[in-house]
């Protein structure tokens, strides 16, 4: 039962195992959902709602918009459930719907602009980058810093770090090249470190 209630997260290996053990239960639930069984729909919703809500919150940073997006995404998922082929996990299929909704919203608001020129400096930035040890940082600090990143690189960073996509996949999702995704991620990391350093200095001063 533990496996069923756990939130599948494709990013981690443990989660992949969980998803594998869930797949039979999922298949049964999904088949019932296809017959418009509202109980099954609720069960499936309950399993993924929190994880998907966190995806929305990370992407749009706004509670009301996140709520709307979550509703939209689940309605679409259930009405398009017949297009799900059991090849990928249901979780990653659903997450893709959620992320597409989020990106559509950001693009509508014209917040998401990823400039291609950044890809030129991709290598340079990543070579320059020296990883600090992040373990010293508080989760809250990192979380807050991420929300302060410029929209374009923030989305790339989210997709890469939290949603478990590689740069080729991110390129496909955002309709940019793989190298643009890499460049944006490097830019995001650099900015993130700057923001965190600033914040640490500020905290020390206080």
């Amino acid at each position: 039962m533990q496996a069923v209630t756990d939130i599948p997260r494709p990013a981690g290996q443990i989660n992949k195992n969980l998803e594998a053990s869930n797949s039979d239960i999922h298949k049964y639930l999904i088949e019932r959902c296809l017959e418009n069984d509202s109980k099954a729909q609720y069960q499936l919703y309950r399993q993924y709602a929190d994880a998907m809500y966190n995806v929305c919150m990370r992407m749009v940073k706004n509670e009301d918009e996140a709520k709307d997006l979550l509703q939209e995404a689940f309605v679409e998922a259930f009405t398009k459930l017949h297009t799900f082929r059991f090849e990928a996990s249901f979780g990653s299929w659903l997450k893709r719907i959620v992320i597409n909704k989020c990106i559509n919203l950001l693009q509508k608001k014209r917040l998401l602009t990823i400039s291609l020129e950044d890809s030129k400096s991709a290598r340079r930035i990543s070579e320059e980058t020296q990883d600090d040890s992040y373990t010293q940082y508080e989760v809250k600090l990192v979380q807050k810093a991420i929300t302060q990143l410029p929209e374009g690189c923030r989305v790339v960073l989210n997709l890469y770090l939290f949603e478990g996509y590689d740069h080729a996949e991110i390129g496909e999702i955002l309709n940019v090249t793989e190298s643009t995704s890499k460049a944006q991620y490097s830019k995001a990391r650099k900015k993130l470190r700057e923001i965190i350093e600033e914040e640490k200095k500020r905290l020390k001063l206080i």
Binding site: R9, M57, D131, D132, V139, F162
Partner: peptide, 16 residues
């Protein structure tokens, strides 16, 4: 190391 940090503390990032 950033990715490692996120992965290790993933549960804490799922706050909502």
């Amino acid at each position: 190391k950033l990715k490692n940090f996120i992965d290790e503390n993933r549960q804490e990032f799922e706050e909502f």
